[in-house]
């Protein structure tokens, strides 16, 4: 009985939190459309989320591409399909690894920072201070992060796609000595524009989720330093889980 009670309690809590996040989403979208537009803040957040994540995203992308090539080459060799390595790497990176890995890196880096910053602002009454200065904290704090997340993630995913494929190329051609012309030909022959396009749409979705979840956790944090810590952990864990779970359903829907 206790076990069922526990499950029930979790479901109620989850539903409640999901409802609150959706309310915040609705409020954020509404505030996004109303002037004044926080262009300066949006640019600042794009730098925080996008540009500053670039080094770690680049390193992850190049090594992922390399290891993908390494594994697929040795695997494909077993049935003489080495010529398809370029395509396999490109397909996995553009459809899956590009958006998902970028999303998880940004959730850990920028999502944690967002939750910690907003959480600290909440517990030190800076968010209340914004309200008393007749400024909507949702518009001032959450909208720029939401737009930046939505815009920066696809841009980062493009970088991941290019660098990942280059990493794959380096290993296949440079290390295994495969033909460069075949690598590119097979990649271009089989990869479709929608593989790249849907990957970028997924990245945008993940960016919006990270920003919204992290802002939500920070914005409603309570209980001093401990509360901010919990909000930050929660932001990273829930964002990462949301990326991985929604990725399956988005993929199932997009790549039918």
């Amino acid at each position: 009985m206790k076990f069922i009670e526990l499950i029930g309690r979790y479901i109620i809590r989850f539903t409640g939190e999901l409802g609150n996040v959706l309310i915040l989403l609705w409020y954020t979208v509404k505030q996004t459309l109303v002037p004044p537009y926080e262009i300066k803040s949006v640019l600042k957040q794009i730098i925080e989320i996008g540009i500053k994540s670039l080094p770690v995203v680049l390193i992850t992308a190049v090594f992922t591409g390399m290891v993908m090539a390494l594994q697929t080459y040795t695997g494909f060799k077993r049935f003489n399909a080495e010529s398809m390595v370029g395509f396999a790497v490109a397909l996995s990176i553009t459809r899956e690894l590009g958006p998902v890995l970028t999303g998880i890196i940004v959730a850990g880096r920028a999502g944690a920072a967002m939750a910690a910053e907003l959480g600290t602002m909440r517990v030190t009454e800076q968010i209340d201070a914004l309200e008393t200065l007749a400024t909507s904290p949702v518009k001032y704090l959450i909208v720029p992060r939401f737009i930046a997340g939505l815009a920066a993630l696809p841009a980062l995913a493009v970088v991941t796609d290019i660098v990942g494929i280059m990493g794959g190329y380096t290993v296949t051609v440079g290390f295994f000595g495969a033909s460069s012309a075949t690598y590119w030909k097979k990649t271009w022959d089989f990869i479709e524009l929608e593989d790249i396009y849907f990957g970028l749409v997924k990245a945008g979705f993940f960016g919006a989720c990270i920003a919204l979840i992290s802002c939500y956790k920070g914005f409603y944090s309570e209980g001093g330093a401990e509360g901010v810590g919990k909000a930050t952990t929660g932001a990273v864990v829930i964002s990462s889980m949301t990326i991985l779970i929604s990725d399956y359903f988005l993929s199932a829907w997009m790549f039918r």
């Binding site: 600290t120 602002m121 030190t124 009454e125 800076q126 209340d128 201070a129 008393t132």
Partner: peptide
Amino acid sequence: KFGMLFQGAALFD
């Protein structure tokens, strides 16, 4: 119409 001074000042850091 309001101005408010917070206990911890609540300055934007």
